[in-house]
Write a protein that binds this DNA or RNA. Structure first.
Lengths: 357, 357
DNA sequence: CTGTTAGCGCTTTCAT
DNA sequence: ATGAAAGCGCTAACAG
């Protein structure tokens, strides 16, 4: 359990020079069959593992990494994901990586289209995509595939694509456990309400729909017959929501539980706080700053988290290792769905600040 | 956002040679005040960050790392923690680290004492301690401090010690949320039972006690008056437990909820499965193989997890960075307490296999 | 007190 | 097809 095996050791054992070993290591040809076999045997036997950091040092290349995700403000979901990305880049100090972010408005399909156009023109070595609109994403991908630019997904996947990898949370399961939690929290057969955001233009295949499907599936699986309400609210014009929500709850006084199918649950929690409503249970998604505040003050009962920093971190790490070290990795990566309560949020908050990755 | 700053750049800007820069970087003296200031300014200005991997390359030292934790069998809590340690070591391929494990019997204080003696004799560069018995650990630490060997804790801390760092889950909060979960799961005022393991010799300050304290605190905070039973069982002689547990439940037919204050919850779950008991809710700790099985088959309702792999990984990483790169880091690290349900265990299982760290 | 230099493991160019 | 050698960023030993 000591003394590192180096390329030199392999060369010696195989009776060749380090140059030749390197050639077979990354099969760049010009090696006789005999040498190749000898070297492969030596690598096998000595369990040689190249030191990727030294490799990066010797390679001295620069890479252009491009990231396209929704716009966000501080403390929001995508903020966490972006910080995971940045953390990964810092981590690979040895590698010279230039990063360019392209942000689009996730509630406006036309803006997304425009942004994705810039992305395809950017000529990156690899791109990380946080998709929202299915068709726009498929179009972007067709461009990238034509240009032979590898890409990975974070947050969610678009079906029938061939990313290098994806790092997402499963929205169906997310909805499923939200259902489990809210029904566990409320008396049986309570009336429940689902809040979701509306988008401009197309809204097919977005995560919300899959979450809702999971939510309904749980009720069906458990043969629960709660009465459900579905309420759309605007994610763009926040000012109108207070009226909208207020109106809704006044007209429906029998609601015992609410869930919000996107990360904006705090909007509902804030309303409860303002009106001093304590008899409606609330289950939300994502550890945004505002949701954290709401769960701490007791207006959110459960918060489901999708580990956005880990998604960003892992996606970036995968890409870098692919580019620099030619390593391969798992394509399908589903992150855990953490269930947070009032008493555990602070632990997650703290841990997100640890350089744990 | 490109072109790495190197020690050479700093040397040039400060008008000195790289040797001098290196000297101030690790303050090994023999540098004039003027040079030092110029160099520090240059580092500041250019935001220079040494490439730690190259540093390790140039240092070419070997380190002896010693780890002392309880014995375990495959799939148990400490197995996960150990795999985190191993993962960290693989990660730092560039560094030549020899690792030696010393395992002790966590249910036998005399065996622990014997093992810790070997640890102090081993002359390691640093040691990772997974403590169980307080006094034995304090004794070990006094030896280590005398020998000036740095140490870090995983799993739990012993108070009034000065470790380099610790990576633990908070047992009090763990008990607290177990209380929250089990009372949420059962009708109000249900009779509840707490299972805990007995140890040979001393048992002061072990994690179980703190968990229990948290459990009781929740009941008090929420003014709950559930009737509580406390049952000890043997962690050493597993064969006797079935009778013991069976006896217990037959004599106490009014129990609606049970919690197990250590990672051996599956023992109770197995009993429920065998006897086909479905009306007693069960909350347990740790994602051991057996607990995973039990939660999947529905006999455990909630499982609290303490991220043992992350604990092991981070502890090892910290030590390596301290030894090799002289980096400093946060001393107190409380890992999140994950709440798992039937539907999310598999996500955690999968993720533990990702090389996420 | 300071500069120069060899060498860590790896990649790549240039002869051969 | 192959080896020799330079150079990546950093450390440490050595000379001055």
């Amino acid at each position: 359990m000591s003394k590192r095996i180096t390329i030199k050791d392999i060369a010696k054992l195989a009776g060749v020079s380090v140059g030749t070993v390197d050639r077979v290591l990354y099969n760049r040809g010009s090696v006789s069959e005999a040498s190749r076999i000898a070297i492969e045997k030596a690598i096998e036997k000595m369990e040689y593992k190249p030191n990727i950091h030294v490799s990066a040092l010797a390679l001295r290349k620069t890479y252009k990494l491009c990231i396209t995700i929704p716009q966000f403000t501080e403390g929001e979901y995508w903020d966490a994901l972006e910080s995971g990305i940045k953390r990964a880049i810092e981590k690979y100090e040895g590698v010279d990586i230039s990063v360019k972010f392209f942000y689009y408005n996730q509630f406006d399909i036309y803006d997304c289209r425009k942004t994705f156009d810039e992305v395809s023109k950017y000529d990156a070595d690899a791109v990380i995509i946080g998709p929202t609109f299915r068709d726009e994403t498929i179009y972007l991908i067709s461009q990238l595939e034509y240009l032979k630019i590898p890409y990975v997904f974070v947050d969610s996947v678009v079906e029938n694509t061939s990313p290098l990898a994806f790092f997402v949370a499963d929205p169906y399961t997310c909805g499923y456990i939200m259902s489990k939690l809210i029904t566990g929290l409320t008396p049986s057969n309570s009336e429940l309400v689902l809040f979701q955001a509306e988008r401009i233009g197309d809204e097919s295949a977005n995560t919300t729909i899959l979450r809702k499907r999971g939510f309904l599936a749980y009720l069906k699986d458990k043969k629960l017959t709660n009465k459900l309400h579905s309420v759309m609210y605007s994610a763009l014009d926040l000012s109108r929501n207070d009226d909208l929500i207020g109106d809704y709850f006044e007209k429906n006084p029998n609601i015992h539980g609410a869930i919000v199918l996107n990360s904006r649950g705090h909007v509902i929690a804030d309303y409860f706080e303002k009106k001093n409503i304590n008899n409606i249970k609330l289950v939300c998604i994502d550890m945004t700053e505002k949701n954290i505040h709401a769960i701490k003050s007791g207006y959110i009962d459960y918060l489901i988290c999708q580990r956005p920093e880990a998604q960003g971190y892992l996606a970036t790490k995968s890409i870098i290792e692919f580019l620099v070290y030619r390593l391969s990795f798992k394509v399908e990566n589903y992150l855990p769905l953490d269930i947070l309560v009032n008493e555990t949020v602070c632990l997650y908050e703290e841990f997100n600040n640890i350089d744990y990755l």
